[in-house]
Amino acid sequence: MAVLIAALVVAGLALIWFAASFKVLQEYERGVMFRFGRLRPIRQPGVQVVFLGIDSMVRVDLRIVTLTIPPQDVITKDNVPARVNAVVLFQVTDPVRSVMGVENHAVATSQMAQTTLRSVVGRADLDTLLAHRADLNEDLARNINAQTEPWGVEVKVVEIKDVEIPQAMQRAMAREAEAERERRAKIINAHGELQASEELGQAAEILSRNPASLQLRYLQTLLELGADHNSTVVFPLPMDIIGPFLNKMSSGVPAGMPAGMPTGMPTGMPAAPAASVPQAPVTVPDGSHS
């Protein structure tokens, strides 16, 4: 009876041991199998038999893993301190090498990404870090992939997420950007003045070819002044019309009279001798006479 009970116990334990030896691998997993410490062929997805105490299996996930690199304190090529963080997407391509080549491929990839990030950013200046981030991302992915390829890990994407610079440097960059915009505004204004002067010169040349066009321009100006309901109307006169009158007035000869003719006397009459006229006394407010 005791022998039967012992046999039943042994059979039960064997049944439990055998039932516990069944393992299920998901479609995105692969199993690296060891039997008595020796590497066995890789196990595919599905139900696999792993005998307890004899075999051991390491599950390897083949999906893309997202790894966040914590902020790293770096100094750029132009001696500007900055804090840079990034994200790394990697995938295991060889399960056997990921287990046999490194103890923990995720931790190793994270540490390698941090050191490579500091090294690559330290070789670039601040302008490159801010404006040419895509080139730095490609350089990071290439350098990290060269280190992780012997482990059966392929780096898919490396992206620099954020770049933090000191507040003093931010204010200096803001002043620089403001000065650059002011310089562009002055250049644009100067170009506008140059183009306007060229257009005005061409317009003046066209108007000078036909005096009637200039008179029409005067009339249009009067129309624009009258549209504003102004109480004062300015009549512009061209200098070529009033110029002769001004010259005659400055010489003391009325317009239309020959030069050398005395003013205020009809033509052909002799001038009368000037007579002395007695001056009347002028009364001054204080009572004295002059």
Rank of each mutant, 00 (worst) to 15 (best):
I5T: 03
L8S: 13
L8A: 15
A11V: 09
L13P: 02
L13H: 04
A20H: 04
A20Y: 01
S21Y: 07
Q26K: 03
G37E: 05
L39R: 09
R43F: 09
Q44E: 15
P45H: 06
F51T: 10
R59V: 15
R59W: 04
V65H: 15
P70C: 01
P81W: 04
P81Q: 03
P95E: 09
S98K: 03
V102S: 03
N104V: 01
T109L: 02
T109N: 06
S110A: 13
Q111P: 00
Q114F: 01
T115F: 07
G122L: 02
D127Q: 09
D127H: 03
D127R: 05
T128R: 10
A131W: 00
R133C: 08
L136I: 15
A146K: 06
A185W: 06
E193T: 05
E193C: 03
L194A: 13
S197M: 11
G201S: 12
L214K: 01
Q215Y: 11
Y218K: 08
E224C: 00
L225H: 00
G226K: 01
G226R: 04
N230C: 05
N230V: 03
V233T: 11
V233F: 13
F235A: 07
G252L: 04
G252D: 05
G256T: 07
G256V: 07
M257I: 15
A259Y: 12
G260E: 11
M261K: 07
M261N: 02
P262Y: 09
P262S: 09
P266L: 09
A272F: 09
A280V: 10
V282M: 07
V282K: 10
T283N: 07
G287C: 05
S290C: 09
